[in-house]
C-alpha cells in the first residue's frame, strides 16, 4: 500500500510536520508498525521518519553517573554500549533477551516505549531504573517519569503529535539488579517478565527494593509499597516471598495464550520472588551504581 515518507532533519521539523497532518505517524525502527500492517491495520498515508535526525541515537553519560539514551538508539546499540554495560548492566541483560538479534538491530528504545505494548521486556528494567522520558510536542518539551508513562493497553502519556526524544536514567544507588524473562519457548514474548533492583546497606540489609513486572497487566507494573516491608531487613527467602505476594496483588493479568489470568498471577509471584533474590545475591556479591565497579554476572 502506498504511503508518503517524510524525512525531517530536526525534531522541531518532525513535530511541525505532524501538526500539519494529525493522521501522520512517527516512524522509528518500524518493527511494530510493520507488524500492525501485516495484521491488516491500514497504514497511515503519511509516515514521519525520525531516522534521519542527527544525534537522536546518541548514548551519553548523564550527570552524576546517570545515562542519556537517544530515543532512536536501537536496542542492540543500547545493549552493547560500554556505558550501559558498566552503569546499568540490568538494562543490557534485559535487552539481550528481547526477540532476536535482527529485531534488536532495528527496533529502537524510544519506539519500544512509545508503542505501549503490555508484553515488552524493556519497560520492566527501565521502570526499576527510574527512567524519565523526554518528549517533544508542538507546545514544547517535557519530562515524564516512566512510572507515569504507561496508561493502559497501547496507551501512553504521550499526547498526539508528541515524540519521544530521549530517555534519562538517573544514577542508581549501589545495588544488584536482574531481569528474568519467563517464556514458553525461546523466541516467544514473555509470559511474565520481572526486573528487580536491590540496594543493601553495610550490614547486608535492605536499603531499597524496586520491582517491575511486564506482561501481567494492560501496562507494565512498577510494584509499590515494597520498601515499607523490606527496609532494614535482610533479603531472606521469607522476605522475598512476602514481597512477591505484594507484587502478585498488584498485577491485573489479561489471560492470553501464554497463560491464563490465574497462571500469570501465579508466575508473577514466582518470578517476582526469584528476581528479588537474584538481585539481592548480586548486590551482596558486588553492587553496581555510583562509583562502583562492574558487577559479578
Amino acid at each position: 500500500m502506498g504511503f508518503d515518507l517524510l524525512e525531517p532533519r530536526t525534531v522541531a521539523e518532525a513535530v511541525e510536520l505532524h501538526a500539519r497532518d494529525g493522521n501522520a505517524v512517527f516512524l522509528a525502527g518500524g518493527t511494530a508498525l510493520l507488524i500492525l500492517q501485516r495484521q491488516g491495520l491500514p497504514l497511515p498515508r503519511r509516515l514521519i521518519s525520525l531516522r534521519g535526525i542527527p544525534g537522536l541515537d546518541e548514548i551519553t553519560a548523564g550527570p552524576g553517573g546517570g545515562l542519556r539514551i537517544g530515543a532512536l538508539a536501537t536496542l542492540r546499540q543500547v545493549e552493547r554500549h560500554p556505558l550501559v554495560v558498566r552503569r546499568v548492566p540490568l538494562l543490557a541483560e534485559a535487552l539481550r533477551q528481547v526477540a532476536n538479534v535482527r529485531v534488536r538491530h532495528t527496533a529502537t528504545l524510544g519506539g519500544n516505549l512509545a508503542h505501549g505494548d503490555y508484553r515488552l521486556d524493556p519497560p520492566a528494567p527501565l521502570l526499576v531504573l527510574g527512567a524519565q522520558v523526554r518528549a517533544v510536542g508542538i507546545g514544547g518539551e517535557r519530562e515524564i517519569a516512566l512510572a507515569a508513562f504507561f496508561r493502559g493497553l497501547f496507551e501512553t502519556a504521550l499526547q498526539p503529535g508528541e515524540v519521544v526524544t530521549e530517555l534519562a536514567i538517573p544514577p542508581t544507588p549501589p545495588s544488584g539488579g536482574t531481569y528474568l524473562k519467563y517464556a514458553l519457548s525461546s523466541n516467544d514474548w514473555p509470559c511474565v517478565g520481572a526486573a528487580a533492583l536491590v540496594a543493601l546497606d553495610d550490614h547486608g540489609r535492605c536499603r531499597e527494593v524496586r520491582l517491575a513486572l511486564t506482561a501481567v497487566a494492560a501496562a507494565p507494573v512498577l510494584v509499590r509499597g515494597l520498601d515499607e516491608l523490606a527496609r532494614g531487613e535482610p533479603v531472606s527467602d521469607r522476605l522475598a516471598a512476602r514481597l512477591a505476594d505484594i507484587a502478585a496483588a498488584q498485577v491485573e493479568p489479561v489471560g492470553d495464550q501464554r497463560g491464563s489470568e490465574w497462571y500469570k498471577r501465579e508466575m508473577a509471584r514466582v518470578f517476582a520472588r526469584r528476581a528479588l533474590l537474584a538481585a539481592a545475591r548480586r548486590a551482596e556479591a558486588g553492587p553496581v551504581g555510583d562509583g562502583t565497579k562492574e558487577p559479578v554476572a
Binding site: I35, R38, L184, S185, S186, N187, D188, Q257
Partner: peptide
C-alpha cells in the same frame, strides 16, 4: 487467533 510467527512459536535453537 495466533496465525503468525508473532504468536505462534516453533522450536528455535535454544529450545
Amino acid at each position: 487467533t495466533n496465525g503468525s510467527f508473532l504468536d505462534y512459536m516453533i522450536a528455535g535453537y535454544r529450545d
